[in-house]
Design a protein around this nucleic acid. Structure first.
Lengths: 190, 190
DNA sequence: CGAAAATTTGACATGACTCAACTGGAGTGG
DNA sequence: CCACTCCAGTTGAGTCATGTCAAATTTTCG
């Protein structure tokens, strides 16, 4: 595991990186593999070294809603459960074969106490993630399905390569049929 | 300003609280007052001592979308701009006369370096806020207008007291007419 | 009280959903 | 190399939830 890559910019010493490294474990999953299932206790969060995953929620009508995708250098978990200690309301699956580095909440909390710069590094990551989720809420409230789809393509070109249209539809909050029609409209307008 | 109340549970000494206190400024705004306007540079975040505020976004069709309400003991800002250093895409206004304690990004960053426990305290706050925004995205994707309204009443009874229905509508992502019909339906079902 | 603001109601329009059928690959195995 | 199947995506027809616009009603507050 290449910790100096993961924590690039955090200003950590080699010794600190070694200590951090000891708290991560490399795990590999095949395409279709399930990292986390609804109802599970959520001990870990995952850094994506390679591959593509998605976190999704299944509602009472059986519809899937994708909360997040993750590709190289992203972090993923059911953070509601991970942070608060509850059980997962989401599942996480691999869309492509994946290599992940996982770490537990308790490991991270001790590391934060020992290495304040690591806590700063993660706080900043969390701030950016928080801001991007706020933007997504506003985008969902303000924009049409077509606008949201175009914004998705623009913001996440690395993700678009790996995922099926029905995954994108469930992220945007529309059905596959609607997304298909949206794509048709866009194609016609050229 | 009562810092021991704001940072209750952070495990800070009196001396630390005094130091923190020096980085906050009490400000009062009347009902209708604008704390922050779209386009402004966002230097501050605000702790709500009393009153009620809302952060909202105006889209290109002129419709308002409420991202967040804030009542006593909540924090508010345009966090996307506050964290990333850009200009505000939102405005924040007082729904009720408000007393706020404001602090700047730069103050907080130095305080975090001086008092790691303060950074831990804010990181945990941010984690909870992050989790609740994730839940809101899922709720918007999975639930009907009526379900979202009922969930709002249940989750934020303190907010509901202060705000107009059209504020709630703009938070839920429906028109005032739709919210009115939803309320009518709910009333009929009793 | 009276004006302005907020909410409700009605009639109609529309974007997105549902369900069902169909199309077009991408494998797989004979 | 073809027939078969599976899966993703598309298309069509009808329905439904919510939006739009206009008007009526109720509430708020100076």
């Amino acid at each position: 595991m290449n910790a100096s890559e993961i924590f690039k910019g955090a200003g950590l010493s080699e010794q600190e990186l070694d200590h951090i490294r000891a708290n991560f474990k490399e795990v590999a999953y095949p395409k279709g593999g399930v990292i986390l299932d609804m109802g599970d206790t959520v001990k870990y969060q995952y850094y994506v070294q390679s591959g593509c995953l998605r976190a999704f929620f299944i509602d009472k009508k059986g519809r899937e809603h994708t909360l997040q995708f993750a590709v190289k250098d992203w972090w993923i978990s059911d953070y509601t459960a991970y942070f608060t200690g509850g059980t997962a309301i989401m599942s996480i699956e691999c869309i492509q074969d994946a290599v992940l580095y996982r770490t537990s909440r308790t490991s991270m909390e001790s590391l934060f106490q020992e290495i304040p710069r690591l806590e700063t590094f993660f706080r900043r990551k969390l701030e950016r993630a928080f801001a991007s989720f706020q933007k997504r809420i506003l985008s969902n409230l303000a924009n049409s399905a077509q606008e949201r789809y175009l914004a998705f393509l623009k913001d996440y070109p690395q993700v678009e390569k790996y995922v099926k249209n029905y995954h994108i539809a469930s992220y945007l909050g529309v059905t596959t049929e609607t997304l298909s029609r949206v794509r048709n409209e866009i194609a016609k307008s050229f």
